[in-house]
């Protein structure tokens, strides 16, 4: 009977750490698939306007960004002033630089994908439409017809 009454102190068995790396790898793959790499850092401040009818920007690999906003405070404002400017890739550019940028973006994709390249205009809400119109005109003349106005999703305030 000693077999049944013998009291051993109850210990929690040590966790088996062998499968931890599997779990971490799974997490890693999860994050790798759902995230996108951060593109070039922004030198202009952008607060996108709100909209209710937004759609998601599909196929990240076919999207090129055009950032519009006022240069960041400090060094950037000293260099470029406080007026709205365009940032293409990682430099502040002029409207006249857009055709070359579009051309480069087209060249970077295989030919079959080129008609589907979307140019996402990410502009600050206080930007004047004059600049945006100029950008749109350049895009239109260069053959980039698919555009996208970046906006933040919001709830409808009125009907």
């Amino acid at each position: 009977m000693a077999r049944f009454t013998g009291k051993k102190p109850k210990e929690t068995p040590a966790l088996n750490m062998g499968s931890m790396s599997d779990i971490i790898f799974m997490l890693l793959f999860f994050f790798m698939t759902i995230t996108t790499m951060r593109e070039s850092s922004l030198y202009v401040t952008i607060k996108v306007p709100k909209a209710t009818e937004t759609v998601k920007l599909e196929k990240k690999s076919l999207v090129s960004y055009i950032n519009v906003g006022t240069p960041m405070q400090g060094e950037w404002q000293k260099k470029y002033g406080t007026d709205s400017r365009i940032q293409l890739n990682d430099q502040i550019s002029e409207v006249s630089d857009i055709p070359l940028y579009v051309e480069n973006e087209f060249q970077a994709r295989i030919e079959a994908d080129r008609p589907f390249v979307t140019f996402s205009i990410k502009a600050d809400k206080d930007t004047k439409m004059g600049l945006i119109s100029d950008i749109k005109q350049e895009l239109r003349n260069t053959g980039a017809f698919k555009i996208f106005y970046n906006a933040a999703k919001s709830e409808r305030n009125y009907n």
């Binding site: 009818e53 759609v55 920007l57 980039a144 017809f145 555009i147 906006a151």
Partner: peptide, 9 residues
């Protein structure tokens, strides 16, 4: 993900 309004010029 980016959200917004898509348009065709």
């Amino acid at each position: 993900t980016d959200q917004g309004i898509a348009r065709r010029l």
